[in-house]
Amino acid sequence: MKTISKSILKSKLLELLQLVESEWEEIVVTDRGKPVVIISKYGNLSSTEQLFVKMRGKVKYFEDLTTPTIEEWGEV
């Protein structure tokens, strides 16, 4: 993710918008070093698979997540 200050953004806006459009690059715009806006390409919402592709193979399930936990925690 690229970061740029508001003052530089004004002079390079067209170039940066082309970068966002062609390469799906996101740009964080800062004001005095603090992030204020993210510029990203408008598109269809990503599928769940696309959102979590980086996590594939890193998450491990040790039990069925839908089973009740009464035995473990006791009845309330």
Rank of each mutant, 00 (worst) to 15 (best):
M1G: 12
M1I: 14
M1R: 15
T3F: 15
T3Y: 14
I4A: 03
I4W: 02
S5Y: 10
K6V: 09
S7W: 04
I8S: 04
L9M: 11
L9P: 00
K10P: 03
K10Q: 13
S11M: 07
K12N: 15
K12M: 14
K12F: 10
K12Q: 14
K12C: 11
L13I: 14
L13G: 07
L13K: 13
L16A: 07
L16M: 14
L16C: 08
L17I: 05
Q18M: 12
Q18E: 13
Q18P: 02
L19T: 01
L19Q: 01
L19M: 06
L19K: 01
L19N: 00
L19C: 02
V20S: 03
V20G: 01
E21V: 07
S22W: 06
S22R: 08
E23L: 08
W24H: 04
E25G: 02
E25K: 04
E25Y: 03
E25P: 00
E26S: 01
E26G: 01
I27R: 00
I27G: 00
I27E: 00
V28D: 00
V28G: 00
V28F: 02
T30R: 00
T30V: 04
T30M: 01
T30S: 03
T30D: 02
D31F: 10
D31L: 12
D31Q: 12
R32S: 08
G33E: 06
G33M: 05
K34A: 09
K34R: 13
K34P: 03
P35C: 04
V36S: 12
V36F: 13
V36E: 14
V37C: 05
V37R: 04
V37Q: 01
V37G: 01
I38H: 03
I38S: 04
I39E: 01
I39M: 06
S40R: 12
K41C: 04
K41M: 06
G43R: 08
G43C: 07
N44W: 09
N44A: 13
N44E: 13
N44H: 11
N44D: 10
N44C: 07
N44K: 11
L45G: 05
S46H: 06
S46E: 07
S47D: 09
S47P: 04
T48R: 07
T48G: 07
E49I: 14
E49F: 14
Q50M: 10
Q50G: 05
Q50N: 10
L51Y: 07
L51M: 14
L51N: 09
F52I: 10
V53K: 10
V53C: 08
K54P: 02
M55K: 11
M55E: 12
R56D: 05
R56E: 06
R56F: 06
R56V: 05
R56N: 06
G57Q: 09
K58H: 14
K58P: 04
V59Q: 15
K60L: 13
K60T: 14
Y61A: 12
Y61I: 11
E63V: 13
D64Y: 05
L65M: 15
L65Q: 10
T69H: 01
T69L: 02
T69Y: 01
I70L: 11
I70C: 09
I70Q: 08
E71A: 06
E71N: 07
E72V: 05
W73R: 15
W73G: 10
W73L: 15
W73D: 13
W73E: 14
G74Q: 09
E75P: 00
E75V: 01
V76R: 08
V76K: 11
V76P: 04
V76D: 09
